[in-house]
Design a protein around this nucleic acid. Structure first.
Lengths: 308, 308
DNA sequence: GGCCGCGTTGCTCAAAACGCAACGCGTGAT
DNA sequence: ATCACGCGTTGCGTTTTGAGCAACGCGGCC
């Protein structure tokens, strides 16, 4: 469709905040982009962007327009997916915004399983925290959000919420490894390595530690779980992670070089909720819709029984 | 928007069932229309229409595509109305599909009232019965449906349902005119003039007459209420009409040349429901939305108290 | 079998979109 | 204070896209 390139350009302008950068992104000259924008504004009868010295910014009318534009783009994609599906071939693309905890095990496993059936479907997975995911849903940047709940009411549709326990992660030969379930106090007899504030596991932990006397500062902090895992593998330190992101969580229990995970007693940590969020009253493309079905089933089967 | 003319063309093709007639309707040559259609089909990767010897017909993919196309057209109109509203001036257009009973008094009064405030808003009012109205809602041909319920479940969103009594209409000097409320049996002591089957008042009446011994065939039948009114004005015959369509129903009680209406006792006629229907999960343009608000208020204030 | 109306296609020309280069104008660093 | 940089914008020549016209092929229908 011809007008869709105009829409894509305007979307790019809104995202990047300037005409020139949008032009670059679309492999076009600034003048072409500027012309299309101007034409659209003329047809609409209103300026969509406020021109500033360092770029452009959406004005009030623009906020409404960009909503319509993104809606139209998403609807178009959905139509394509519907028709492709009708023709028997399942192709398409799924954009996912999710918490970091799903990256090492859960999502790779789910996507691998899905692509085994439908190799033509491509994925884009981006880690983002709660509020960013809500924005991304609203702006049609992602189709699906997989995040952990905070104590704010989400302004998207919660399609599924599964409880999640906290797990301690330590070296395989760690003294505590012989227990199946650990108390928090036991873990704190060893050095603790923590993710930065803002990570869901850390948040859950801090909620649990509130008022506890054995609370102590972490021996290392990092925004890289990669690093934390490597650290606990070679020391007697312990780190924490949401159940679904801990080694051995998914059926893919591979590549765990020297670390294991043990669940924390629910008396210590009241579990958080893993939320599957969708944009309200948005019709998803076929591929995304089916992927939601798959992980809904997986989460129900696999994790709900483990709640005690 | 440029691509919208393609969409409007395809919509016209789907409605008229042929490329040539769509071209005529859009004041273009068949080849131009055919080209646009072909381009769209190429971009989509699928043929939308099945070519027959006497025109074209939507195929399976086409049904999905036309849905998206009409949705997009409606959304575009809505964006325009939103932006116009933001700029302070309320303009726009409202398409209404409704029962005949609303034509003489209710709708003219409501529209006049609305246009007194917003003269820039134009209206298109079309009489249609229940199932046709449902189709029109679905195909974005009308924004609002105002119809009387039948015993089928409507597949649109019922935004409002107000009970409606039946009224007898007769000459001002008719012997029965001195009563305030009439029994059905009283009316049937005089000749009755009826609308054709399919009109809501007639349906309501037939439901009430079921099994009644005094039932008798109408002395005249017509599809024109204009004619029926004139007939009862000059004879002692009686005709029936839904309350809201009877003279004196709305605040505009004018131009009633020699006829009056009297309500039928609710023991005889269980009232029908006047339904205000909208397309499910469709966002209306501003003008239509505000008009819905107005008549919702009017119907609630004016008619709901009259239920006994 | 001829006729009519349908969708479709080559061709020509007008209109729209594009790329290039240049301009005016703020901001921020020098 | 000045200069340079990056921004949106515009004039112009070129290229691509779209429209109209006429004609063709094809299927029903009298």
């Amino acid at each position: 469709m011809k007008h869709l390139v105009t829409f894509r350009m305007i979307d790019a302008i809104a995202r990047t905040g300037s005409i020139r950068s949008a032009a670059e992104q679309m492999n076009q000259t600034p003048s072409a982009v500027q012309r299309r924008l101007q034409n659209y504004e003329d047809e609409l009868g209103f300026e969509i962007f406020q021109r500033t010295s360092k770029g452009v910014r959406l004005n009030a009318a623009g906020e409404m327009a960009i909503q319509h534009i993104r809606q139209t783009l998403a609807d178009t994609e959905r139509l394509n997916s519907l028709i492709a599906d009708l023709a028997g071939l399942r192709r398409g693309h799924v954009n996912i915004g999710c918490s970091q905890a799903l990256m090492p095990y859960f999502l790779p496993a789910q996507i691998a399983r899905y692509q085994a059936r439908y190799p033509e479907v491509t994925f884009n997975v981006q880690v983002m925290e709660h509020s960013r995911a809500a924005e991304a849903l609203e702006a049609f940047q992602v189709d699906i959000a997989l995040v952990f709940d905070e104590k704010t009411v989400p302004d998207y549709e919660v399609h599924l919420a599964v409880p999640q326990r906290l797990a301690a992660i330590m070296a395989s030969d760690h003294p505590l490894a012989r227990h199946k379930i650990l108390r928090l106090r036991q873990c704190y007899e060893y050095p603790v390595a923590l993710a930065l504030r803002g990570f869901s596991g850390r948040m859950l932990l801090e909620r649990a530690l509130h008022g506890k006397t054995f609370k102590k500062p972490p021996i290392v902090q990092s925004d890289s779980f990669e690093f934390l895992m490597a650290h606990v593998a070679t020391t007697d330190a312990i780190t924490f992670q949401i159940q679904i992101g801990a080694p051995g969580a998914s059926q893919v229990a591979a590549q765990d070089r020297g670390i294991i995970s043990r669940e924390i007693d629910t008396r210590d940590v009241t579990g958080g909720m893993l939320l599957l969020g969708l944009k309200r009253s948005r019709a998803l493309p076929v591929a995304a819709s089916r992927f939601v079905e798959q992980i809904t089933l997986s989460l129900s089967d696999e994790y709900r029984p483990s709640v005690d």
